[in-house]
């Protein structure tokens, strides 16, 4: 009995890890293209993303979905080493935890959900200095910047980063969102960002508003 891409999507959506990986393997062996596999993955992860937004899925579920995708992508790349995933360049988000702060759980959740929703994420990591944000925005021609911090030390770093983007003449071309435990609307106003997100679902909503629905 040949497995269908529909079954792969469902296995991912229901977080049945071994079945999902096995389905992808069988699909590949049966001649399915990387595009078909990735499309099924996208559908499955979309369900997880929706459940997250409804407050039904949390960190364990997002991380497990991410693990399943990583295993499947690895399998696909082993079989088709030259095939790359094409994404429209405009759906790009530059993301990082700001200077002085090395917390990354929240930022990683946002990165995962953005990718699951078809955005391309340029993840600058943690303790990211303002000039690195500026360089990345210029290099990637990104239209959206996401800054995260858990500690109040991040407020100054965020303010400096917004200022650095302005000094480099690229502030007008980007929308900036901030998030993380140490942030709120008052902090947004203080640092001069365009929006504050309370959780990762807000980040997706903002990216959709600003970039028009994502890459998918």
């Amino acid at each position: 009995m040949a497995v269908s891409t529909q079954e792969l999507a469902e296995a991912i959506a229901q977080l049945r890890e071994q079945e999902a990986v096995q389905a992808a393997r069988e699909l590949l062996e049966g001649g399915a293209s990387p595009t078909e596999i990735f499309e099924a993955c996208r559908q499955g992860v979309e369900v997880i993303g929706q459940q997250y937004e409804k407050g039904l899925c949390f960190l364990p579920e997002l991380l497990l979905a991410g693990e399943i995708l990583t295993q499947i992508s690895r399998m696909v790349r082993e079989r088709y080493p030259t095939e790359a995933e094409a994404r429209p360049a405009e759906a790009k988000v530059v993301l990082g935890t700001v200077q002085g702060d090395i917390h990354d759980i929240g930022k990683n959740m946002v990165a995962f959900l953005l990718e699951a929703n078809g955005f391309q994420v340029v993840d600058l990591g943690v303790d990211v200095p303002p000039e690195t944000f500026v360089e990345s925005v210029k290099r990637e021609q990104a239209k959206v910047v996401g800054m995260s911090c858990l500690l109040t030390v991040g407020h100054q770093s965020m303010k400096r980063t917004v200022q650095a983007l302005a000094d480099a003449g690229v502030r007008e071309g980007v929308r900036i969102m901030i998030g993380g435990a140490a942030t709120n609307e008052q902090v947004r106003s203080y640092v001069g960002a365009d929006a504050w997100g309370q959780n990762a679902a807000d980040a997706i909503r903002l990216a959709r508003e600003w970039l028009g629905g994502g890459g998918s």
Binding site: G100, D101, I102, D104, I105, D127, L151, V153
Partner: peptide, 18 residues
């Protein structure tokens, strides 16, 4: 852990490195 001068700047709190 990272602490001032050891992985984080000298005016920032120590932080756990997960």
């Amino acid at each position: 852990y990272r602490w001032p001068g050891h992985g984080v700047p000298e005016d920032v709190s120590y932080q756990y490195m997960e």
